[in-house]
């Protein structure tokens, strides 16, 4: 019986993570790119983003829970917002740290601003963006454990119940799969990064 519940929990957990990280990644990428186009204003916007990043995921879940009630959508929105910040931050700093020489060379070759962004700036910022994705994923898996605090399943159910009832077996049954899930996801993204990244930029990422 535990076995079936465990599989259910893992599936729920993975769904939460995949959906929220995807939404968060897309949002973060877009907003990061937009902010990188207006660096003058971003200098003021950015510290605010950093402050938001220090807010623990539980607060997002909590606030939305109070507004939206106990629905899976609450968890997904909360986790998406949370996952967005690391991606946003890394996209923005990644693009801004691309050497100006490359940007000028792109301009000098006759690339329009869009072409320069998509052909040169973003590919060069790519290692940073993926590092942001990795952070977002690992954090989201971690905070998804908390989804159980508002009774919405996931591996946290086991841990939470185990902790409250002092049942070590339950704790371990939830904690170990969650840990493995996170480690595997991290390793997968590392693999993905190596695969996607061209030979040319790999050296840069190592720096």
């Amino acid at each position: 019986m535990y076995g079936k519940m465990l599989i259910n929990s893992i599936v729920t957990h993975v769904c939460y993570v995949i959906i929220s990280v995807t939404i968060g990644f897309v949002l973060g990428l877009i907003i990061g790119i937009l902010l990188s186009r207006i660096p003058k204003y971003s200098a003021y916007i950015f510290p605010i983003v950093s402050i938001f990043q220090t807010i623990p995921g539980i607060v997002f879940i909590g606030v939305l829970f109070l507004y939206l009630g106990m629905k899976p959508v609450t968890v997904i929105i909360a986790l998406s917002i949370y996952a967005m910040f690391p991606v946003l931050k890394n996209t923005y700093t990644g693009i801004l740290s691309v050497d100006e020489g490359y940007v000028e060379a792109a301009k000098g070759c006759g690339m329009s601003p869009y072409q320069a962004l998509f052909k040169v700036e973003l590919p060069l910022a790519f290692p940073n963006v993926i590092a942001g994705l990795r952070l977002a994923t690992v954090y989201t898996i971690s905070w998804a454990v908390l989804a159980s605090t508002i009774g919405l399943g996931g591996l946290g159910d086991f841990v939470y119940q185990g902790v409250s009832s002092n049942n070590n077996t339950l704790i371990i049954a939830g904690a170990i799969p969650a840990a493995i899930l996170a480690v595997v996801a991290g390793a997968l993204i590392d693999r993905l990064q190596k695969k996607i990244m061209s030979r040319g930029t790999r050296g840069e990422a190592a720096k």
Binding site: D99, G101, Y102, E104, A105, A106, K107, G108, C109, G110, M111, K119, V120, P123, L124, F126, S198, G200, T201, G203, E204
Partner: peptide
């Protein structure tokens, strides 16, 4: 205009994310 004028800058100008062939074919 820029597409009709060649432009070479110091070493850094090659795009590191593109191969030699891709770099040559940018314009």
């Amino acid at each position: 205009l820029r597409r009709s004028i060649g432009y070479v800058i110091q070493q850094i100008g090659l795009f590191p994310n593109m191969t030699v062939a891709e770099n040559i074919c940018v314009v």
